[in-house]
Design a protein around this nucleic acid. Structure first.
Lengths: 210, 210
DNA sequence: CCGGTAGCCTACTGAGAGTAGGTACCGAAG
DNA sequence: CTTCGGTACCTACTCTCAGTAGGCTACCGG
């Protein structure tokens, strides 16, 4: 029982920095174990900070998840925006493809973290569910606005269905790629999915489907 | 402290029947509260049976969820099959639309139970995740086989992407309908989503996109 | 050098998943 | 009718883990 002093006493650190550390650790653990099987004790252990800190900064386990989701979604959002902006000049079909490719690429790079944080582990039933849907809503809005620019004559319902359909399709295809190992690259996947949707968009816009 | 005997002693019942009772109650509670917030105690209370029974029959909380998922998925599967079979004579586009309509209709009828059991609450990270994906796989296979009949010249990757895309799109659109109240009927929703996908299918099949 | 506060901790409570180890009931064999 | 076996069922736990109460300490401005 050679007790070397009362406690190791971690180093102090400004709040913002600690928050980032915690988020990084939490993202890891969530990705490894999934939300359900993640324990706050393990996260705190991995950061090297005590549990009440996590609650101080993120209120609850769901809060912590939510913060992770918000962060990774924001990254996804900017990545997509960037890709889309670059393709803008090449016309709508190129934009669609670039957006999809950015998405699959992002999913590839973030592996299970992407799957857990943005899809499966969205367990929550209460207010957090709303919050997560709200975050997803940004993405939907982005697509909806792009769509209604290209399809000015389409009804709002049509635009909504197309936008949500596109998002759902992307998510599920990305998930499939993750699970099957999928020897098919983001670029080709994007092209295939664009093939599925583009003719529909073209028809709705009154253009030839080619 | 007027204790009226040691316990009310429920009625005995053959296993299969009890299992159905339990599944019904569990589906209710899962739908109301979501997986996370559902307690086995509450389920057992609602069935009027003690907790160890649930574990005897379903092994774990995840096992119970899984059984619910399997049951509701099976219902969905037969509903879809039926609708599709009826539309078979009217050609592929009709089949697509009928399948989608059956899906949205099913989601409408089962409300939150559908959302929780088939989408959001799929929390699980371990083997249960696999099991759930496997169940979903049936549906994917169904669509894939239909697709490869209509698009005999398409590569397997293309068929896979289209199939997963279609499923993802349906799920997300159904979810959107559920959340927004969506004053748009299953029939019209199906037509819109079919509009989104059909031209792509037609192009892939080498037909006019009309 | 002396508050004030922001970052941090130990040590608890309570809820709920899962289990050990029985008891009551029923049909069949003796 | 009685014992035997099996199946449905129960009470009363354990243990893990989210979340909290309450206090200590390092650092900064005055």
């Amino acid at each position: 029982m050679t007790d070397v002093g009362p406690a190791p006493r971690r180093k102090r650190m400004p709040r913002a920095e600690r928050e980032q550390q915690i988020l990084a650790a939490a993202e890891e653990v969530f990705a490894e174990r999934g939300f359900q099987a993640t324990s706050m004790d393990e996260v705190s252990l991995r950061v090297g900070v005590s549990k009440p800190m996590l609650y101080e900064y993120f209120t609850s386990k769901e809060g912590l998840l939510l913060a992770c989701v918000a962060r990774i979604r924001a990254d996804l959002h900017t990545a997509t925006l960037e890709a889309v902006a670059k393709a803008e000049a090449d016309g709508p079909r190129a934009v669609l493809e670039a957006g999809l490719e950015a998405y699959f690429d992002f999913a590839d790079r973030h592996g299970r973290a992407w799957a857990v944080l943005l899809n499966e582990s969205v367990i929550i039933a209460g207010p957090a569910e709303e919050a997560i849907e709200a975050i997803r809503g940004q993405q939907t809005l982005l697509i909806q606005s792009a769509l209604s620019r290209w399809l000015p004559s389409a009804s709002p319902e049509r635009v909504a269905v197309y936008a949500h359909g596109l998002i759902g399709a992307s998510e599920r295809v990305a998930r499939w790629r993750l699970r099957e190992g999928a020897g098919i690259r983001p670029r080709e996947t994007a092209a295939l999915l664009a093939d599925a949707f583009w003719p529909g968009f073209a028809v709705a816009a009154g253009l030839p489907a080619a």
